[in-house]
């Protein structure tokens, strides 16, 4: 346990030493909320959105964005670089299993995602009065499902790409369409019907929907939860099958 804590702490330090990645994970989602919240019309209830405000939606989208940054952008690049550089191989010669390093990385990513999400929620609440409905357990559930689904994809990408650079590229290529379906450019509520149907089956579309439902007091719908679990099972299994240590 001491070793795990030390590995996790080391990973946190290393993460913070990559200022661009750290900024995008920790602050960019909040910055997005602040920018959109500064537009007066986005703070007005909208009939198109069933009486919700644009900013209400974007707080949930910013949480999905946080998870996309961590799981899809950063994870594949970092893990694949570790393998490419032989960091995992070196660890395999010590009493500490490389699995422990992967665990420490996931712990670090989890902490970063939680910190960023907390900041998004706090700023949303304090600056723009976006409230988490009373159903906090539902929010936690939606958050965990989305995190697990996207991380499974990120780890699978890390497993199959040949290098850290390739991991970075594939992550970026996946990031934009996945975030599109999460509503980063057009919130799901104003997407055409057909795009909504498609979005329901994408990991971040399903995740954003589940987060939004939890924030408005409900529970994640069965379809979104099933879709996210499906991603966890399918990509988790594929990642475990194809992961190479060197």
């Amino acid at each position: 346990m001491r070793v795990f804590a030390k590995l996790t702490l080391t990973e946190i330090k290393l993460f913070l030493r990559e200022p661009i990645a750290a900024f995008f994970v920790l602050f960019f989602p909040t910055l997005l909320v602040v920018i959109l919240g500064s537009i007066p019309s986005f703070r007005e209830p909208s009939a198109d959105l069933g009486g919700a405000r644009v900013i209400d939606l974007y707080v949930g989208i910013a949480v999905a964005l946080t998870l996309a940054m961590v799981a899809i952008q950063v994870t594949p690049a970092v893990l694949a670089t570790y393998r490419e550089r032989g960091v995992l191989r070196r660890l395999a010669t010590t009493p500490v299993s490389p699995l422990k390093l992967l665990g420490a990385q996931l712990a670090m990513f989890g902490l970063a995602a939680i910190a960023s999400t907390a900041l998004v929620l706090a700023v949303g609440r304090l600056a723009f009065d976006v409230r988490l409905a009373d159903n906090f357990p539902a929010f936690v559930l939606a958050f965990l499902l989305t995190a697990a689904g996207t991380l499974a994809i990120g780890i699978f990408v890390a497993a199959v790409v040949p290098s850290g650079k390739a991991g970075n590229s594939v992550g970026t290529i996946l990031f934009f369409p996945l975030m599109f379906f999460a509503g980063l450019w057009t919130p799901r509520e104003v997407m055409p019907e057909v795009l909504q149907r498609i979005a329901d089956f994408t990991p971040l579309g399903a995740g954003e929907r589940a987060l939004n439902e939890a924030m408005t007091g409900g529970w994640p719908n069965l379809l979104s939860a099933t879709v996210l679990l499906g991603y966890v099972v399918v990509f988790g299994f594929a990642a475990v099958r194809s992961f190479r240590w060197s």
Partner: peptide
């Protein structure tokens, strides 16, 4: 090992301290 590296931003001290903690 002939081919094995460390993370770019890990300092020498941190690497040694971390790896020392792996052993009894």
């Amino acid at each position: 090992l002939q081919e094995s590296g460390l993370p770019d931003k890990l300092t020498v001290r941190e690497a040694l301290d971390l790896y020392a903690s792996f052993y009894p």
